[in-house]
Write a protein that binds this DNA or RNA. Sequence first.
DNA 1: CGCACCGGGTTCTGCCATCTGC
DNA 2: GCAGATGGCAGAACCCGGTGCG
Length: 382
Amino acid sequence: MAVVHGVRALLSLHRSALFQRSFRLIPVQLTSTCLPTRLCSATTKSKKANLEQKKANKSILDNLHLMGVDVEMACQRQPGVFRKNFTNEQGLAQFLQSKGATSEEIASIISRFPRAITRSTEHLEERWELWRKILNNDSEIVSVLERSPEAFFRSSDNKNFENIITFLTSLGFTTKDLERLLLRSPRIFSCSLALIRQKVKFLNDICVELGGTNPEQFTKTVLSRNAFIFSDSIKRIRMNIDFLRTYLKLGNSEMLSFIQGSATRILVLSTEYMQKNLNSVEQMMVSLGCQKADIQKLIHTYPVVLYIRPETLSSKLECLLKVGITLEQILETPKVLDYSTQTILGRLELLQEVGYNFRVNGISVLDNSQKRFLAKIKKIKV
DNA sequence: CGCACCGGGTTCTGCCATCTGC
DNA sequence: GCAGATGGCAGAACCCGGTGCG
């Protein structure tokens, strides 16, 4: 059993690394194509940081240097912190160390969010206690801090944090729900309670507007399926809902179940990106001989298709079509597009090796976990 | 038992803009 | 006018397994 857990942990680590890579590398790749501007702005930023360092309180800078903080980065981010007469970097470091953070982690936290050193030890203790009411141990909090120092330090309003917890609990969020929220999307606990209330009301209103009778349940379903809706603007969610409603021409009750079902995930996309992707899906499908109604059906049954980058989508389609799978089959089972191009390619290869006939047997064999898929291949071979 | 259908798990920070209070 | 507080945005998939039915 322990072995299974170990393997799972490894797999999930691997997955997470892949995920990080696929999401995070892109900006780097993009920036490398516009190097001159980046270099230029980097130099300006560096100059600005130098200037800020000159104006700064030298004893703070010296302290931070000793602690291994990237002072240039810190000065550039929040210069005001360094002009203060009193800061609490030593207290902060001691505090975090007592909670199990390493000195490298502490330096990185301060480099990325310098305002952390303006928090008093009493404040830190109080905030930590509040977080501990939701999370099981100190190391979980340290891991969130390491990931996103801003989430913990940006707000000095501990009462607001408490109020949010009370409010969400009153909506029926369990401790387990709150734990997941704080671990996955810690930033939302630094929003003002007023904004959180506004977002909840907004979702309730959407439900009522679409003729729903249980807005509280609707809101909770939507939020638990995609906590990031909390961190997106009402404007964006509204625009996405309107956009999808106009495009799909769904009735009220259909739209209601669409939003709290398969579409929840894509509500947080930037509207521009969603529209751009829809255009490109349309173009691709039309060029393959699709009617508008087919495309609408595809978006309705598999809205996640709007998440996929055009180049990725096109390469997935290409490798499916190349082995004789028809577009009709893909539209019938769009979930095959869920898997990475690499996974799809690998599976197609294995299936061709065993002489799998897609026309006769269909393509849903592709929509399976790896374990089930390999079992299937093994069976076919026998 | 095999298959199709379906839903759910994971992932999400770093930076800029604007408001607020002193 | 300044620093702190808060809001908002860009970024851009992949995978697994439960369950009900024939």
